[in-house]
């Protein structure tokens, strides 16, 4: 397809995203922050999925990062920016340790263990009353950047930029070939000299670090963390539905999925006080059953068919 057109579109979208605070009010900005947060999480989930591993533990690493930032400020006296940098380091280090143990697991065993790990993190934080504040959580002295809505929006956008950049780098570098080979056939990948464990570990650590960073941004922009708020299962569920709907194994899929689902769920939330998340469950089921490649896959197929007809 026309590369320059795509590049111009991407640039325009980027410019629009950066300049949003100039013309959007407080409420749209808040919605945009949510959409961006889930978009970034969906990208990190998809990056690991490109190797064929499904993680149900996004909320776990997000929460770890959130607590790393909050406790970094409160217990170690870190500055705001230092605490933000500490979140990905901590989550990445945790992922490195965990990865050594669990990345030899495959398929459902890996998925279930990540789900269990997220619960373990939550319970541990819940119970270390003196250090983590227990179920009541911790409250920071204030929100970062003086609480300016525009600045916090840009901070979240910065988090997304990291995720987008990493996802793009994964698509363009050797990661792409390594992960695709592992996903398609591990035996073939190994016999072509792909060191499966090392690639998986690198991917797991990178995606976890980004999830931790996003957790840190979340804490710094709301000023508090409780086990139930930062380990909320929605941080696992929504990114999953977003990436599936948009189209997995791509950067563009989760981006569009997040915009579509984020806006529609916001709209639903205003109409249905309870259970608006049902749409996420329905989308997961429908996508898995009828269009496992997501909207991006459908669009690509449609384009190819249209081009075939034109020739």
């Amino acid at each position: 397809m026309n590369r320059n057109l795509l590049r111009a579109l991407a640039f325009a979208a980027g410019a629009l995203a950066v300049s949003l605070p100039a013309f959007a009010g407080a409420y749209p900005l808040q919605v945009a922050r949510n959409v961006i947060m889930y978009m970034a999480l969906a990208l990190t989930w998809d990056m690991l999925l490109r190797s064929g591993q499904i993680s149900f533990g996004i909320a776990g690493l997000f929460g770890l990062g959130a607590y790393a930032t909050a406790l970094g400020v409160l217990r170690a006296g870190m500055g705001d920016w230092l605490s933000l940098a500490f979140a990905p380091v901590f989550a990445g280090a945790a992922a490195l340790l965990i990865g050594f143990l669990i990345l030899r697991l495959r398929a459902m065993y890996f998925s279930i263990v990540t789900l269990a790990l997220a619960e373990i993190f939550r319970i541990v934080i819940h119970n270390l009353h003196d250090f983590t504040g227990g179920p009541e959580g911790v409250v920071l002295d204030g929100v970062m950047l003086g609480g300016s809505a525009a600045a916090l929006y840009w901070l979240t956008l910065g988090g997304l930029a990291v995720a987008l950049g990493a996802s793009w780098w994964f698509e363009k570098s050797k990661f792409h070939f390594a992960l695709t080979a592992i996903r398609n056939n591990e035996t073939a990948a190994r016999s072509s000299g792909v060191d499966i464990f090392r690639w998986l570990l690198a991917t797991f650590v990178i995606t976890s670090a980004i999830q931790g960073l996003l957790g840190g941004i979340y804490v710094q922009s709301y000023g508090f963390a409780t086990p139930d708020s930062v380990f909320d299962a929605n941080f696992t569920l929504l990114p999953l539905a977003i990436a599936l709907l948009g189209g997995i194994h791509s950067t563009i899929g989760p981006v569009f999925g997040a915009i579509l689902l984020g806006l529609s769920s916001e709209w639903l939330k205003l109409r249905l006080p309870y259970g608006h998340l049902v749409v996420y469950g329905v989308i997961i089921v429908v996508v898995i059953l009828f269009m496992p490649q997501g909207l991006y896959g459908l669009a690509r197929k449609g384009l190819r068919r249209a081009e075939g007809r034109a020739e």
Partner: peptide, 12 residues
């Protein structure tokens, strides 16, 4: 997804 759907439908 089915699990989410069921629990959220009841919630709804």
């Amino acid at each position: 997804g089915l699990g989410i759907m069921f629990s959220q439908l009841v919630n709804l």
